[in-house]
């Protein structure tokens, strides 16, 4: 495959991974705030949430591998693993590397969840929210498609969905505390 084709795959998987991450985030917020409706059981939402999270990590890894294989991107092993080492678009790639780490931590701590303390697991799991935000920032700053209207509209819609789900979750948390207090 040519560098140009790897570049296309990098862009495509980056966009899909961002959408999947936002979808996992939204489903997770709806599930944890008990706003999943009556049509599906909570286990269904949890199952889908876990799957979307894992798929997000897979597409993120493909995104990284494709950018590594594209020799024109200037991304090497050091830039992939260590934040702040990229020469071009240093900050944007830094956000992407950190977001990848948060996704990986979130996924890999969900499997041995029962062995972790609930508070610690929840704290680690919530870092994925920061990861999604950083992934969106990464796409906005480094993506060549960020200048297109379709990409900006899609990014705005996904961001609005994520903020809405976050609002629902925070509201549910406040309501629960009010009832308990």
């Amino acid at each position: 495959m040519t560098d140009t084709q790897w570049w296309y795959i990098t862009r495509a998987t980056g966009i899909v991974a961002t959408v999947l991450a936002v979808a996992a985030l939204v489903f997770g917020f709806f599930f944890s705030s008990r706003n999943t409706g009556e049509r599906r059981r909570p286990a269904w939402w949890l199952d889908l949430h876990n799957w979307l999270g894992g798929t997000t990590l897979v597409f993120t890894v493909v995104h990284i591998v494709a950018s590594y294989l594209d020799r024109n991107s200037g991304i090497g092993l050091l830039q992939v693993l260590v934040p702040g080492t990229a020469k071009n678009a240093s900050w944007a790639i830094t956000w992407g590397v950190i977001a990848t780490y948060t996704f990986a931590i979130t996924v890999f701590t969900s499997w041995p969840r029962k062995r972790l303390r609930p508070r610690l697991w929840r704290l680690v799991h919530l870092t994925s929210v920061v990861g999604v935000a950083l992934a969106g920032l990464h796409a906005f700053q480094v993506g060549i498609d960020a200048t297109t209207l379709a990409f900006e509209a899609g990014l705005a819609i996904t961001a609005a969905l994520a903020v809405y789900a976050l609002g629902v979750r925070v509201l549910a948390l406040l309501v629960n505390r009010t009832h308990q207090g």
């Binding site: 084709q5 296309y8 495509a12 998987t13 966009i15 899909v16 799957w51 798929t55």
Partner: peptide, 27 residues
Amino acid sequence: KRPARVAKFGALALSCATTAGLVYLFA
């Protein structure tokens, strides 16, 4: 045991199809 099996594989198929479509669009 795997309640969202259809939705999961649907999401995976949709993701792969979207990726392929985007690659074609970019090209």
